[in-house]
Amino acid sequence: MIKNFVTLLPVALFALCAAGALEAEELGDTDAGQKVFKKCTGCHQVGSGAVDKIGPHLNGVFGSGAAEHEGYRYSKSMARAGADGLIWTAETLDAYLENPRALVSKTRMNFRGLKKAEDRANVLAYLRTFSDDPSDIPEAEPTAIAIDHDLDPAILALEGDPEYGEYLASECLTCHQSDGTADGIPSITLWEPEDFVIAMHAYKRKLRPHPVMQMLAGRLNDEEIAALAAYFKTLEE
């Protein structure tokens, strides 16, 4: 029995750590993307000194609006997409590259599309390096895609762990004060744990309006919210 326990232990540790080891995914491989981009270079330029050719140059495309780039004559379809508010992000560019006409009906981009998701991810990672860097311009488009935590079964191992809750709560304390003082930022102490869980889920589902809280709650899974509640419960006792 004891021997069995010893062999099982590393597996349990693995499960715990697996949840932490992979939380986001980079868009793709920039080197591989540079090779994929050769399919595009007949019409598009990117990088230092890039200019408009048959297609517009692609510097700064991430975060820009469709048909926003001045000096290039876009199709009416693309201009309309821009007027409708289409912004080029990792998600919209991925859809456009998979099948340009599926997103913009009469685009002048005469290209059948990249059918392999990996090719699209790689070429987007390559193109992303020619747009604003979030470390310099914090509002610049993300460089990675968050993975839905709820899909990771390993993180279930952390359910309702008050120690994990205490660690997660440290993020709250950058703004909220632990002594319950409320000036400009509301107090979160002495809440009923149930009320807390309901409020966090309401932010997560974007029912409660506040961009910081929507963003922070949005990346907590059910178990993490439960862990926070478990920790707050220990404070009451």
Binding site: A24, P134, P138, E139, E141, P142, A144, Q214, M215, R219
Partner: peptide, 20 residues
């Protein structure tokens, strides 16, 4: 204000969401 959340990848701390 401008803000974002970030997570660790093998390569770097990567931005995953944000607002302005």
């Amino acid at each position: 204000k401008v803000g974002a959340t970030y997570e660790a990848t093998d390569e770097k701390i990567a931005k995953v969401d944000g607002f302005i």
